[in-house]
């Protein structure tokens, strides 16, 4: 068994997840807490990778990252057919799962708690850091796991922008495809098992995250006197 694709997959997933968090948390805050023109448009755009064929997303990425694009012409940033391109493609495919989940979690935080923090002297940044995000953290974590799992399993867009170069851009799903093409069913079985277990474990984890301990839900509601 060649472990290279697994390691590469993990590397791509970790970087993709970091990209999702860095871009996704501010966007989720914005969508949950601010009313602005075009919010619906932004939300639709973010959700688009959920329903588009991954190859379409990959094609857009080729336009954005390929020869003649600003990234290459202005910054000299040659990222196509490297593992970096795979990470970007995976991040975009996992992004809607993360943002929508985080947005819902943030919208579920009682705004009165944020008001309370303001009257206690907190700046908006502190309100976010000390109240909103900690209270939304289960939903955010659930979104993170979902997004990461989606990134791990990404195939189509990755193939378009990073190819399937063994040892360089060939992630686990791509290696699986190769193995089947070459009738290496032993290897394919191992990879299928691995990907299935990872997906199962992460969905299991999401369930756990989304069932809040009673504690948090209970206290915002009218308290019963128990002196």
């Amino acid at each position: 068994m060649n472990w290279q694709p697994l390691l590469l997959s993990l590397q791509v997933t970790v970087v993709a997840t970091m990209l999702m968090v860095v871009c996704g948390v501010p966007l989720a805050l914005l969508l949950a807490r601010r009313r602005f023109r075009g919010a619906a448009l932004v939300e639709t755009l973010v959700s688009l990778p959920l329903v588009l064929p991954p190859t379409v997303v990959g094609y857009y990425l080729l336009l954005v990252l390929g020869r003649g694009s600003p990234t290459v012409e202005w910054f000299g940033w040659q990222i196509l057919f490297t593992w970096g391109a795979a990470a970007i493609a995976s991040a975009i495919m996992g992004f809607p799962l993360f943002v929508l989940s985080a947005r819902a979690a943030i919208a579920g935080v009682d705004p009165v708690l944020e008001h309370a923090a303001r009257t206690l002297g907190s700046s908006e940044l502190e309100v976010t850091r000390r109240v909103t995000l900690p209270l939304a953290r289960r939903g955010i974590l659930a979104g993170l796991v979902l997004g990461a799992t989606r990134a791990l399993g990404e195939f189509g867009a990755t193939l378009m922008v990073a190819g399937s170069i063994p040892g360089r851009t060939q992630t686990l799903p791509l290696a699986l495809y190769d193995a089947v093409q070459n009738r290496q069913y032993d290897q394919a079985n191992v990879m299928v098992l691995l990907l299935t277990v990872l997906a199962f474990v992460s969905l299991w984890a999401v369930r756990r995250f989304e069932q809040p301990r009673q504690s948090f839900a209970a206290s915002a509601i009218s308290p019963q006197e128990r002196l």
Binding site: V112, A116, R118, T119, L120, G121, A220
Partner: peptide
């Protein structure tokens, strides 16, 4: 802004931070 007013506010149902 609210954070600079130093007006103490005890909310209905208290708004304690549950975490």
């Amino acid at each position: 802004p609210a954070r600079r007013r130093r007006v103490g506010y005890v909310f209905q149902n208290y708004a304690l931070f549950p975490h």
